[in-house]
Design a protein around this nucleic acid. Structure first.
Lengths: 233, 233
DNA sequence: GAAATCTATTTGGTTAACCAATTATTGAAA
DNA sequence: TTTCAATAATTGGTTAACCAAATAGATTTC
C-alpha cells in the first residue's frame, strides 16, 4: 500500500490513476449495468492504494452517475453500458479546470434562459423576493458601497423564479467562482454600478409583466460588456 | 454526541441542520471573508454531531465555493460577504432534487449552445471524434441494436468540441440522469432511432462546414419531440 | 526590549479498527 | 434431494485514534 505524503496535485493525479484502473477493470471483466464491482478492500489491495483513495474515486464516479454504492452490499455499475461508461470516464479524466471565459459564457447562457423562464413562471412570492433583492442592491449602490453580493442575490433570485432546479443548481455552482474571478481580473467597473441599477429594474419590470422576450433582451443588454469580453477577445 | 443509526433521508436532513447552524454561527459571530471558523472538533461538540457529519457539511459548502479548508490550519469563509453567504446557503438548503423536465429543459439549452460553439471552434481532431461517434451510432441502429450509449457519446463529443469546459462538465452531470429517466418514462421511441441517424449526420455536417446557425437549427430539429414534451405539457 | 529558538498545542487530514446489515455457507431436518 | 434455519464471512459506512504541518506560547539569547 502506497504510504507517502501527498500534496493536492498528487492527490488528484492518484485519483485519476485509480479511476483509470476502475475503467480498465470494468472493461477487462466486461461488467454490465447492475454488475458488482470488487469490494473496496480488494480494490485497495489490487491497486495498491489506501481504501479511502478508492472510496473517493468511487464517490466521484457516483457523482457522475456511473456507479452506485449500496451499504453492506457493494458498489454496482449504474444503468449504463460498457461503451458509454468508457466514453464518460475518459471525458471525466480529461476535464480541465473551468477557465473564466468558459464560466462567463455559461453564465450568460443560463441567465438569458432563466430570465425568460422567470418571466413566464414567476409566482407573486418570487416577484417579491426579486424586488427585495433589487432594492437592497439599489440602496447599497446609491450609498456608494460595494454591492457585489446584492448583485449576485438579484440574479440568483431570478434563477430561483425560473422554476428550473437544474439551472438553479448550476447558477449556484458557477456564481461564486465568477465573483472571485471578477475581483481577480478587475472586469467590473465601479462606475457601471449606477447604470446597472436601471438595468436591473428593467429586467425586473419585464419579469413582472411576464414579457419573456423583453426579460431576455434586457438581461442581454445587462451582460453586454461581459458578452463582448467573451466573444470579441 | 448523537449516536443513532441514520438512513439516507435522515442523514440529508441532519446535514441540512448542520449547514443551518453554520450559517447562524457565521451571522452571530459576524464572520467576514477570510475569517476562520471554529475547528471541526469544536463544531462537532457545539452542534452535538459527529465530526464526520461536520466535515461533510463543510465539504458541501466548499463545493459551492462558500468555505475553504486549509490543512493543519482551519476552515475559512470564502471571499463572499455575510449577505451573499446567507442568500446562497438558503438557496442551497432549499434546492430540490432535479425533476426530469428541468433536466431535459437544461439539456436542450446546453446542446443548442454547444452545437453552435462546436461549429465555430471544433478542431480537426474534434471532428474526427464526432464522426467516429456518429458512425458507431449508425452501425448499431442499422443492425437493429440498442444505441442509447452511442447516441449519448455523439452528443458528448459535440460538447467536448464546444471548447467550453463548464458546459462540458454540466453535460456530463445531467446526461446519465437523463438516460436513466428515459428508460423509466419510455420517452424514446425505437422507430425514431433510424430517423435520428439522418439528424445526427446533418448536425455533424453543419459542424464540419462550420455553419454555427445551421448546427443549432439541426440540433433544435433533433430535439423537437423532447422540446414539445417540455413546453407543451 | 527585541529577535530567535524551542516546545506544546491545535489544526484538517488519514487510517485502522469497528459496526450493523447483508450475503454466503453450512448442515440439520424433512 | 430439497428446504430452511443457524452461523460465518463480507460489505460499505462510521468512528476514534493517530499524523504531520501549522500555529501559539514560552524560553533563551543578544
Amino acid at each position: 500500500m502506497r504510504v507517502e505524503v501527498l500534496n493536492s496535485n498528487e492527490k488528484v493525479e492518484l485519483q485519476k490513476e485509480v479511476i483509470t484502473k476502475v475503467r480498465d477493470l470494468i472493461n477487462q471483466k466486461n461488467l454490465e449495468p447492475g454488475d458488482k464491482l470488487p469490494s473496496e478492500r480488494m480494490l485497495s489491495e489490487k491497486f495498491e492504494v489506501t481504501r479511502s483513495t478508492i472510496r473517493e474515486a468511487i464517490q466521484k464516479l457516483e457523482f457522475y452517475g456511473l456507479l452506485k454504492s449500496i451499504p453492506q452490499s457493494g458498489t454496482f455499475v449504474a444503468n449504463i453500458g460498457v461503451v458509454a461508461m468508457n466514453g464518460m470516464i475518459n471525458d471525466i479524466l480529461r476535464l480541465e479546470e473551468p477557465d473564466f471565459k468558459s464560466l462567463v459564457e455559461t453564465r450568460i447562457l443560463l441567465e438569458l434562459k432563466t430570465a425568460r423562464l422567470a418571466a413566464i413562471r414567476r409566482t407573486e412570492e418570487d416577484l417579491n423576493e426579486i424586488e427585495k433583492a433589487l432594492d437592497s442592491y439599489a440602496t447599497k449602490v446609491t450609498n456608494g458601497e460595494d454591492a457585489v453580493q446584492e448583485d449576485l442575490l438579484f440574479h440568483l433570485a431570478i434563477a430561483k423564479a425560473s422554476g428550473n432546479s437544474t439551472m438553479n443548481t448550476f447558477m449556484l455552482i458557477i456564481t461564486p467562482e465568477i465573483i472571485t474571478n471578477f475581483a481577480k481580473y478587475h472586469v467590473c467597473d465601479e462606475a457601471m454600478a449606477h447604470h446597472a441599477i436601471e438595468e436591473h429594474r428593467q429586467i425586473f419590470e419585464a419579469i413582472k409583466v411576464q414579457d419573456a422576450q423583453l426579460a431576455k433582451q434586457k438581461m442581454k443588454e445587462h451582460f453586454k460588456v461581459l458578452y463582448q469580453y467573451c466573444y470579441n477577445i
